[in-house]
Amino acid sequence: MSSPRNWRGMPQRYRLEAAKCKKCGKVLFPPRLVCPECHGREFEPTHIGNTGKVETFTVIRVAPSGFTDQAPYAVAIVNVGDGVRILCQVADVEPEELAIGMPVKLEFRKVQSDGESGVISYGYKAVPVF
């Protein structure tokens, strides 16, 4: 991930910042300029929750470049409430432990590092809660 792109995503990837539509209450993560539900343009800042449930998942065994060392790894769609679903990696889990409905929390992890000398990208990953 390039340094500027990494930097622009920080409010979401570091702090889970979202926007709540003032008209219809829809929570947008990441924030957008126009609400897809009611076309409202006014928002108030909010955060998505840092806990949720796995809605569906897959295990990546043939990983794209930059992620080959991590394979096999799990990717899931996590429902964090307020109608928000996020796509993220699941860490600290064995593939056979994964299950739909599994409760998870979001933890701060390294997502990618640009080789041995480039910038390290940080963000959230889901971690099982037992």
């Binding site: 860490a91 992890r109 390294k110 390290i120």
Partner: peptide, 9 residues
Amino acid sequence: PGPDQDTIT
């Protein structure tokens, strides 16, 4: 530490 963990995380 896991491979995705360091002093910062």
